[in-house]
Design a binder for these strands. Structure first.
Lengths: 239, 239
DNA sequence: CAGTGGTCTAGACCACCTG
DNA sequence: AGGTGGTCTAGACCACTGA
């Protein structure tokens, strides 16, 4: 079995919710009913439900049931995402990517510290901009450790870096630490982005790690402020 | 038992990691060892570990163990929380709150739609600003449904709305949907915030729901752009 | 190969909500 | 009181890592 059972159940239920086969505000079948429907034990069902809950599909209420939440009202959370391609796939806009630079370089002190690099490690630097409706609104600057990604071409960067990394190289992304701030636009922003009014950009800095906890990428993603939007679903752990 | 066993184990381990009793990069004891240490079954241990993993404390690697992550490098994620008080508690700065307005009002059409209000429902409007180092940098505008929060005084707003709601009223916050954008400052921003250079503010709009999935609050939090910072830990579900 | 984490099960008991 | 979800258990088998 490629996927685990509880993930299949999660997908089945999340799809039913997205396609409105179950209305928002209604209750999911009880856990025991789901056990019967999916021929699974209760703990397995509960893993699927926990995942739905984490991702904003349902709210569990003890003694009552699992309430289906309204997944349409706000555009749906694109948190937990790491790649631009995935983000673009969720949006209705048409996006194009321009690759400005793909070079191998010796990291400076700042980058060495930031990425915790060993002496002698080299990194790929990739600079790309993303355009929609004729305007360039995102400037991405990626640094990838060459030991992990030995070779890189402009073609791969134009298509999807992550597609290449996950499908061609067989590496698996584990997690990312991100920081969002607002900063003054620099000369490169003016060069590569379509900046009319406004002198500030939203900067998303990410450290991306593989599944084995190895850091392999640092990215600085600079967004024209008026085109930036971040949506999040946050659950409260009171414990 | 007030707390569940797996949550206690989670707290015990997360504290050990925060206090560096276990080094970053090292492995946690194996699941079987933890079973023995905490007199718990393996599934219970695994719930605690899953929680540590979700919150960025560890990375689990099959066949190997649970690697402790570096929790100090980046300031720690302030995602998943909803209240300003908690945020302030994590920061080293000294904050003060000014309450500018606490009034009961009949919602206009926009608010009715936004909050999905029934005919005749009234809401509290609270306007507060937050200052640090002599500068006012955050302007919060909250709307709370009066059916849920019958009475509200300026005193309670100056202290902590959430403290009052959770501890006095006994309500429990469940989850929130948030959206972050950058917008032009309006006249109120100029009135209540210390705006020197810069004409834009970061706007965080949140819909906050109780544990029973009932919406009870809408908040617009406006941040002076140069003081805004959002840190996130994002795990990838590849399934 | 032994040892690790990943998944699944069946059954038990508790806490909460609703009639 | 009956049904719901919340927690915990003991045991089984699988998939991956490393020596």
């Amino acid at each position: 079995m490629r996927k685990s059972k509880f993930v299949s159940i999660y997908h089945d239920l999340s799809e039913k919710i997205l396609k409105k086969k179950i209305d928002a505000g209604a209750l999911l079948p009880t856990e025991n009913e789901l056990c019967a429907q999916y021929h699974a034990s209760r703990e397995t069902i509960r893993k699927a439900l926990a995942m739905l809950s984490r991702n904003g599909y349902i709210q569990k209420v003890q003694g009552k049931g699992s309430i289906v939440l309204d997944v349409s009202r706000q555009n749906f959370p694109i948190s937990g995402l790491t790649s631009f391609r995935e983000l673009a796939a969720h949006s209705k806009r048409q996006w194009t990517t321009d690759v400005h630079q793909v070079v191998l370089l010796n990291p400076d002190e700042h980058l060495k510290m930031m990425m915790n690099l060993q002496e002698g490690q080299t990194v790929w630097q990739v600079v790309r901009s993303r355009s929609t409706e004729g305007e360039s609104v995102i400037l991405d600057r990626d640094y990838l450790i060459q030991e992990v990604v030995p070779m890189l071409t402009a073609d791969q960067c134009a298509h999807s870096l992550y597609d290449y990394i996950e499908n061609e190289l067989g590496l698996k992304i584990g997690f990312a630490k991100k920081e969002i701030t607002v900063e003054s636009a620099n000369e490169e922003d003016y060069r590569y982005l379509t900046m009319h009014e406004g002198t500030h950009v939203v900067v998303v800095r990410s450290l991306v790690y593989l599944e084995n906890a190895q850091l392999f990428q640092y990215t600085e993603s600079r967004h024209r402020a008026d085109k930036f939007r971040f949506v999040d679903f946050a659950r409260r752990d009171h414990m």
